[in-house]
Amino acid sequence: MIELIIPQRRRDLGAFEVGRVLPYAKRRMVGPYVFFDRMGPKDIAPGLPREADVRPHPHIGLSTITYLYKGEITHRDSLGIEQAIRPGEVNWMTAGRGITHSERFERLRSEGGPFDGLQLWVALPEEREEIDPGFWHYPSEVLPAFDGDGIAGRMIAGRLAGVESPVQVDSPQFYVHWQLRAGARASLPPEYSERAVYIASGRVEADGRAVESGNMVVFAPGKAVTIAALTDAEVMALGGEPVGTRYVDWNFVSSSKERIDQARADWAAGRMKLPDLDSGEFIPLPPKLGEAPEPMS
């Protein structure tokens, strides 16, 4: 049964558009997933300006997952790691008690080409919010892949239907990339209490309703769900178990409002900045949002 359909909200960043899906006013999280952004699609000409890069910025209390369909991004962080990500690979960064990172479009700047991908944030369980930061890169060949009955794809993170990704997660969850040929049917089992699918391209039918690309379908718990491809389609399935109320302010996620206030103060005072990270061109701290960050659960 469909609980909610969430349309992506497009924002023009100049070089390309981003489609924000989560958080949404009527549904702030799906399982531990607190943020879902579609980057692109966009054909980028050589000479992309430096302003298109995501300058160094901080995070606490979450992990980021970057997964591309097309193009390439270069990740750099305050742990000293520099890593390019290409289609089908996974960059997993855990902020924990605090990390600073940037994302650069070095190859697209020099060569141009198509760009399309996703970035998600996963809220860490309360007992792991202050763990040491870390970064892991997973090439596509280590991710479980499947191809049969009109369905191809990868298990990106977590576990679903007995298939488990080597990507290390901190709470029960799943994140899957399905490529469906027209007429194919994929089943989403009821093993997690919160589940959703995002239609990246094409058109599908879920619970008797046609769903166009750019929409996320959130399902009620308790029953298996069948996704039928009305055309060739790219579908991302995700979900898991909730981790409790979270506060989100700018790039900070925490179960504690006071912890977010501390992170804001640390960034403003320069305690999370490293001068050798991308020449110190850091994103400034935005104004505080009201009296307190908005709770999400």
Rank of each mutant, 00 (worst) to 15 (best):
F115P: 02
R86W: 09
E111F: 10
A45Y: 10
E103R: 04
T94R: 08
A52F: 11
G96T: 00
T94V: 15
Q119P: 08
G47T: 02
G47E: 02
R50D: 15
R86C: 04
I81W: 04
E126V: 13
R109Y: 05
W121R: 01
L124R: 01
G98P: 09
R76H: 13
T64K: 06
E106S: 11
H101W: 12
S78C: 10
R97S: 14
G61M: 01
S102K: 05
L118V: 14
G98W: 03
V90G: 02
L62F: 07
G88W: 01
I81L: 10
G113L: 12
F105H: 14
E72L: 04
A123G: 15
A84T: 08
D77G: 05
P56T: 12
P125E: 11
L118D: 05
S78T: 13
V122I: 14
D116V: 00
S110K: 15
V90N: 01
T100R: 06
R86K: 15
T64Y: 03
L62H: 00
L48A: 09
L124N: 00
D116Y: 15
V54N: 08
G47R: 02
L79K: 10
M93N: 05
D77C: 07
E82R: 14
E111N: 09
R104M: 15
Y69C: 00
G113V: 12
R55H: 13
G98L: 13
L79S: 07
P125L: 06
I85L: 14
W121N: 00
G112M: 06
P87M: 10
I60P: 01
G96D: 02
P46F: 11
A52C: 07
P56C: 08
G117R: 14
H59S: 00
I65A: 08
E126N: 07
A95D: 00
L79P: 12
E82W: 06
G71Y: 13
A84Q: 13
I73N: 04
K70P: 06
T74N: 04
G117L: 08
W92R: 04
P114N: 09
V54H: 06
H57A: 02
Y67W: 14
E82T: 15
D53A: 03
G88R: 02
P58W: 08
G96Y: 03
G61K: 00
P87I: 12
P125S: 11
R104F: 02
G61T: 00
E103T: 05
Y67L: 12
E127P: 06
G96Q: 03
G71T: 13
I65V: 15
L68E: 04
L124G: 00
H57W: 06
I81A: 05
G112H: 06
T64N: 05
F115S: 06
H57E: 01
D77Q: 06
T100P: 10
L79F: 13
G117K: 12
G117Q: 07
L108M: 11
E111Y: 06
T74R: 14
T100Q: 05
R109N: 03
Q119M: 09
R97M: 04
R104D: 14
N91V: 02
